[in-house]
Design a protein around this nucleic acid. Structure first.
Length: 874
DNA sequence: CATGGAAAAGAT
DNA sequence: ATCTTTTC
């Protein structure tokens, strides 16, 4: 599991790698959903209340009007009054992109039907290695079964050529004049490789046509010999077009290609490279020896850049269809920061719900189970945001459990979670929350699988007999070419049969006239690459959050030393370096090394932005939000208070709960009346106020259930719970209690805690259900019973079965619980406070990339097949 | 507070 | 295991 799979450097031009990129995908999805707006200028917007919402996708008509990403909806309207602004659906108070996710999968399914060697790169992008198909097609061409007619290459462009016809002519010309002698030259090899791209383009055209036919979506594609270049190339002609990148065109293209446009160099690293080497364009990178690059950056990175400067990227396309993690998150900026337990609980539940939903779907579709939960959050501590991440075992797919465990993880890792003397007011406001599940394992059949199966017949409607196996022949994994070529290996190498290929090519050329005229409509600008649009939205402003962590600060502190160390390293002659050069074709060098002499190692200028020492300011003025919040809630009581309420019913929550206690009402300038509670709310607070009501109404339900469970437990144990005075204790008790309801055996609460046997007894439905006021009528009317476990409304005749489901669920949980050790309690409190103004990014550029040695370890097994042989067979 | 959310992968 | 970086 070292690093990324790479191909042998000798095959550097042998692959045909395609990047398929959906054109303004979200817009297309919305268009498909609502045909009314088709063809109009469109921008997809998310969270519309504030200034018309943030734009996350813009279609081409709208782009023509000057609308761009990271505009607000209002701004877009100014540029283009007729613009349509469909919104990203909002579910559970947060943006929900499942609509696009599903559309993306639809597309990927189509792509996958062309090759198993498909790597999904994002929701709307995928890499394909179609080398095998190309080789097959070339064979078919040789056999006369396939003719590469111009109509197979519509909407196709080649970098460095006016139109595709020109490229074809150039290519065929070299084959025409090929003799046995020059057919061994590198140039000739290049042409063979480029021919593959051309043939590949015909396949990609079919792929894109299939996508269009099956899904209705347009896409663009880049066709090159490796991933990075394919990605780059895809951006050259859009939308609904495809571009080939011939080898010869790479150096010219590099001359005007800003280094930062290359994937992987778009961020701080790219800045560093440009700064340290004093360069801007990719073409300037070629002058530096590998050793120098390795010294300034790191070994891996150095090698990667060295090769990249020569148009080489050895990373294999690996079959990957499904995400390795499923998660969701939300920011709570500024006044939206979470300051109370109730709100925190609410949002954790929302996030947990979404994750759960998606996990269950994933279980259905992919027959796998996530084993790890990761909760991330950032807290405002004394004025800086501190981000943290904690991982915990994910033992059962259970929404409540996920939410509770997440909360526990946060608590456990926060030194002072609550404000002094409070059991609900958070000491540190939370500005960001995220829950994600990962470490998927395939669902094995077998003994543990049996429970899962019985489980599944409840949870999933589908009996998923078919298991979408993403298995891919191992042969593909690292060396797709070898196999292809082996199969294809002809008996004779490059012989002098130039007549037949000529015939074929001329057959092709006969149709060139039409091709050229086709592309006339769209003049192929001779690549002003400075303005090239790479990818859909490459102008992603580096907002570079202000969140810093202790580690970052420490790194900065160490930087001086670090840089010095780098400098001290002597310029040792690198064997690896020589190794690479040895494997570069003479033509590679010709292509790139012509003009520029190698320059010497000179030390990087480091900016000595000294790290400011953490200066603690005791700025205590953050209680504003909670004050506002609490004003609202005179009559309602968030779920998290229930425990305390039950335990200490005599206390007024207003005085007991800091979340509401820190009330220092300030005369506010502009207020609005809340339609729900009819309180005056500061205008700028309105949204979060609404959120709060939302939270309230949702938690109400839970509260009922919770109380019922408590009641039951009390009946069972006849014991009291802890005093609410100790915050830590209380919260723990609360968490444990709720967990117990879902099947825990251990609890601090009782001597006779709920055991699994207890749950295995069938519980009469009538005892388990209690109707809430609002639902009563509904339920009576429809003769439905609400399950106290999950809140679902169930038909009476199904309630037994339904309860069985929960029993099974608990059973599984119980079994699971025995397996893994409990989550490791963290050793240290997380909260360390450091501040800095330095935005100096020159830290830590060391990366590890696959060692070049490994890439070249494999000896060349193949002799390249002569191009002329493509045409020899009849 | 102001793009936001999502995911991967590398670094330590 | 946690944090950072990058990208879309």
């Amino acid at each position: 599991m070292s690093s990324k799979a790479c191909i042998n450097i000798k095959n550097k031009y042998d692959r045909v790698v395609v990047l398929v990129d959906m054109d303004c995908f979200y817009c297309q999805v919305e268009e498909k959903l609502n045909p009314e707006i088709r063809g109009k200028p469109i921008a997809v917007v998310q969270y519309n209340p504030w200034q018309g919402g943030g734009i996350i996708a813009v279609n081409y008509p709208a782009r023509a009007k000057g609308v761009t990403r990271h505009m607000r909806g209002d701004e877009a309207k100014q540029h283009c009054p007729e613009i349509e602004l469909p919104q990203v659906p909002q579910v559970r108070g947060k943006a929900d992109i499942s609509r696009y996710r599903e559309a993306g999968k639809e597309v990927a399914d189509v792509l996958k039907s062309f090759t198993p060697l498909l790597e999904r790169a994002s929701i709307d992008e995928a890499y394909l290695d179609i080398t095998e198909r190309v080789v097959t097609r070339i064979r078919e061409m040789n056999e006369g079964k396939f003719h590469l007619l111009p109509d197979k290459l519509s909407n196709t462009f080649a970098v460095g050529y006016e139109n595709i016809g020109q490229f074809v002519r150039k290519l065929s010309g070299t084959f025409d004049s090929s003799t046995a002698e020059n057919s061994t030259s590198d140039k000739f090899e290049f042409n063979k490789s480029d021919l593959k791209l051309l043939v590949g383009a015909s396949i990609v055209n079919e792929i894109r046509a299939a996508v269009k036919e099956k899904t209705g979506f347009d896409c663009s594609a880049g066709i090159a010999h490796n991933k990075i270049l394919a990605k780059l190339t895809a951006g050259f002609h859009k939308p609904n077009k495809q571009t080939i990148l011939p080898i010869d065109s790479i150096p010219k293209m590099y001359e005007t290609l800003p280094l930062k446009k290359v994937k992987g160099l778009g961020g701080k690293l790219g800045d560093q490279v440009c700064e340290v080497l004093k360069i801007t364009f990719m073409s300037e990178l070629v002058q530096f020896p590998e050793s120098l690059l390795q010294q300034h950056f790191d070994e891996r990175m150095g090698s990667w850049m060295y090769l990249m400067a020569r148009g080489i990227d050895l990373e294999a396309v690996t079959a990957k269809f499904h995400s390795k993690s499923i998660g969701c998150c939300k920011r709570f900026p500024g006044k939206n920061a979470i300051t109370g337990l109730a709100t925190l609980t609410h949002w954790l539940n929302e996030l947990a719900s979404e994750v759960m939903e998606r996990l269950e779907k994933d279980l259905d579709e992919n027959n796998r189970t996530a084993k790890q939960l990761t909760v991330s959050y950032s807290q405002q501590i004394e004025n800086t945001d501190v981000a943290s991440t904690r991982s915990i075992p994910l033992v059962v797919y259970d929404k409540e459990r996920i939410a509770v465990d997440s909360l526990e993880a946060i608590k456990r890792n926060t030194e002072r979670f609550f404000k002094l003397n409070s059991t609900t007011a958070l000491n540190n406001a939370i500005k960001f929350l995220g829950i994600s599940a990962g470490k998927f394992e395939p669902n094995a059949g077998g003994k543990s699988g049996r429970i899962k199966q019985m489980f599944q017949c409840y949870t999933s409607k589908k009996t998923n007999a078919e298991d979408i196996s993403q298995a891919v022949p191992e042969a593909h994994k690292s060396e797709p070419l070898i196999e292809a070529q082996t199969k294809d290996k002809p008996t004779n190498e490059s012989t002098s049969e130039a007549s037949k290929p000529k015939r074929n090519i001329q057959h092709f050329l006969q149709n060139q006239a039409s091709l050229v005229s086709t592309s006339k409509g769209e003049p192929n600008k001779s690549h002003p690459i400075k303005e090239i649009k790479v990818g859909e939205d490459l102008q992603h402003a580096s907002t570079s959050g202000t969140v810093i962590s202790r580690e970052t600060v420490n790194q900065r502190k160490d930087m001086k030393y670090f840089i010095q160390q780098q400098r001290d390293k002597s310029v040792s002659s690198d064997t690896k370096n020589q190794c690479i050069e040895k494997h570069l074709d003479s033509n590679d060098k010709e292509l790139y090394d012509a003009t520029t002499p190698t320059i010497n190692d000179n030390a990087p200028e480091q900016q000595q932005n000294d790290v400011k020492n953490a200066a603690e300011e005791n700025n205590y003025q953050q209680n504003r939000q909670e004050e506002d919040q609490q004003e609202i809630v005179d009559d309602a009581l968030p779920a998290s208070e229930v425990v305390d309420k039950v335990e200490a019913p005599s206390c007024s929550y207003k005085t007991t709960y800091a979340e509401f206690y820190y009330n220092n009402p300030e005369p506010t300038a502009v207020t609005v009346e809340c339609p729900q509670c009819r309180k005056q709310v500061p205008e700028y607070e309105f949204q979060s106020h609404q959120d709060f009501h939302f939270a309230l109404s949702l938690s109400q339900q839970q509260r009922d259930e919770f109380r019922n469970d408590l009641k039951m437990k009390q009946m069972a144990t006849s014991q009291d719970v802890n005093s609410p005075l100790n915050a830590k204790r209380t919260s723990k008790a609360s968490a444990t209690a709720s967990r117990a309801t879902s099947g825990s055996t251990n609890g601090t609460t009782s001597t006779a805690g709920p055991s699994i046997t207890r749950f295995l007894e069938k519980i009469p439905a009538t005892h388990r259900v209690e109707r809430s006021e609002q639902e009563k009528d509904d339920q009576i009317m429809h003769h439905l019973i609400k399950c106290s476990e999950c809140g679902e409304l169930v038909e009476p005749q199904s309630i037994t079965e339904h309860n069985d489901y929960h029993v099974a669920k608990r059973l599984q949980q119980e079994l699971r619980r025995l397996e893994p050790p409990s989550p490791s309690v963290s050793s240290k409190p997380v909260v360390t406070l450091l501040t800095t103004n330095s935005s100096n990014a020159s830290n830590n550029l060391k990366r590890k990339r696959p060692a070049v040695k490994e890439m070249m370890a494999e000896p060349n097994k193949q002799k390249h097949k002569s191009v002329s042989s493509f045409f020899t067979k009849l």
